[in-house]
C-alpha cells in the first residue's frame, strides 16, 4: 500500500461525498402522472395533483376523464361495455384503466407504491 493509493481512495471518497451532499444528482420530486395511450401511442399525460376534466378521443369514440384528489377516473364513455366507467379511480403505480372498444389505456406513472405485492407483466 503506497502513498498514492491513499490519495486515490481519499479523492474518490471526497468526490462521492461531494456529489452526495451537493445534491445535484438527486432526482426531482415529481408527482404521479396519468398517461393516456390510444392504440398504443401516448397522447397525453395528466398531473394527478391538478384537478381537471378532459375528453379523450379514442378509436371510434370518446371517453370523459376526471382527475380529482390525486386520482383519475373515467366519468363517461360512449362505448358499449362501460368497463372503464365502472372501474374505480386509480392512483397507484402500475394501475390502469382500459377501454378496449376505443383502444384507450390510462396508466399511472411515478405513482405511490402499490399495496399488492407484485404485478406480473
Amino acid at each position: 500500500m503506497k502513498k498514492l493509493d491513499f490519495i486515490i481512495i481519499a479523492v474518490l471518497l471526497v468526490c462521492a461525498g461531494g456529489l452526495y451532499f451537493s445534491g445535484f444528482l438527486r432526482p426531482g420530486d415529481e408527482g404521479a402522472y396519468a398517461v393516456v395511450y390510444v392504440d398504443g401511442e401516448e397522447v397525453k399525460r395528466y398531473d394527478l395533483s391538478q384537478n381537471t376534466e378532459d375528453t379523450i378521443t379514442g378509436i371510434n369514440g370518446t371517453n370523459q376523464i376526471k382527475v380529482q384528489d390525486g386520482e383519475i377516473s373515467v366519468v363517461s364513455a360512449d362505448c358499449r361495455d362501460q368497463v372503464c366507467v365502472n372501474h374505480l379511480p386509480i392512483n397507484r403505480e402500475n394501475e390502469s384503466i382500459v377501454c378496449l372498444p376505443h383502444k384507450v389505456v390510462i396508466e399511472i406513472e411515478n405513482g405511490g407504491k402499490n399495496s399488492i405485492d407484485a404485478v406480473v407483466k
Binding site: L12, L13, A16, G17, L25, R26, P27
Partner: peptide, 16 residues
C-alpha cells in the same frame, strides 16, 4: 431517464 444518477455517490463508496 436520469433517475439512477443519484446512486452514483453510493456506488462510488461501495466501489472503494
Amino acid at each position: 431517464r436520469n433517475v439512477v444518477l443519484y446512486l452514483i455517490p453510493i456506488l462510488m463508496v461501495s466501489g472503494v
